[in-house]
Design a protein around this nucleic acid. Sequence first.
DNA 1: ACGGACATGTAAGCAGTTACATGATTGC
DNA 2: GCAATCATGTAACTGCTTACATGTCCGT
Lengths: 181, 181
Amino acid sequence: MKKVNKSRYAILGMLMEKSRSGYSILNMMQQSTAHFWQESDASVYPMLKKLEAEGMVTSQSELNGKRERNIFSITAAGKKEFSEWLSLPAEDGTHRDELLLKLFFSANATKQDVLKQLLLHQKKVKETEQRFRDVEEKILSQIPDEYEHKIFWVMTLQNGKAHAQAELKWIAESIGVLEKK
Amino acid sequence: MKKVNKSRYAILGMLMEKSRSGYSILNMMQQSTAHFWQESDASVYPMLKKLEAEGMVTSQSELNGKRERNIFSITAAGKKEFSEWLSLPAEDGTHRDELLLKLFFSANATKQDVLKQLLLHQKKVKETEQRFRDVEEKILSQIPDEYEHKIFWVMTLQNGKAHAQAELKWIAESIGVLEKK
DNA sequence: ACGGACATGTAAGCAGTTACATGATTGC
DNA sequence: GCAATCATGTAACTGCTTACATGTCCGT
């Protein structure tokens, strides 16, 4: 089964909401989809060109002072491709978690080293959870309920929060298990 | 910051427990680390060769009837490299979740399509959860408590279970939100 | 006899990251 | 005047997967 490039759908999806520059797409990803989808600039700009060559998007140059930027808009063909992808069943991706890999092999480590890993991880997850809370507050207060995207943005955010909380609970339990060892 | 290949540590870690063939490493990954780490045969076999060339592992050919297999053992240098990696702080990897990506853009989908996605996902997660339960039972009943790896194997498994449960709870809530929309 | 597990590998290609490169604008 | 942000892109490299390729052993 040939694997198709999913980056294109992430980009097309961002353009479904409104026309945007490559930079704006990257920003949106950083702010809103970072916990389940990211792209780097080195993949977004070339992909936009490719999508334009395929007729899925069109661009028009705008001048903002002397600074130029390309605003991309999705075409009918692009919308069609996007919609087809949207209704296909989602494939499960691979996830690699280095912390769990280390933990799996930690019979070879000292108790202190393992605890250090877990505590550092706990700190990171707490920060992530806080970021989720901040974003949630912003979405709930600043986006009107009628805005059609809101419910789904909140839903994906809840997913992030749920997993962060599950992770924190698991960390606490794991530290407990280790300490009474 | 240059990214080093982490596959090598996954392989070295497997060889820390005992000497194994490439096939056995792949099996172990499929059975035990699949939910947070996987490698394909096309990466394990070449990596074993590379590790051998670097002096991190040695191999010896065994005959099992007429069928040959290479059993790899970790060397002192390999153990050293592995231990150094083990005590370094874990880096967070990128995870891409196509379901969440679709959901994020689902203002452009019908309610039915979204529900279909969620229900299919729910089915998959339930299966995963069941697999975790099966493995847990196997580990708890078949591996003696004194075996030093047991506690960490159980720990990584609990992580999988915790996230599967969090995901199921989130799915149920999301379906609820959608239905009263 | 046949299917499934055992067992090992190569080749091709796409994906994705890091590093490199450049320049304007805005706010302090 | 300087730093941060806006804005776009290329080149080189590594990584990883899919598909290809081959053959044995064991149980039914």
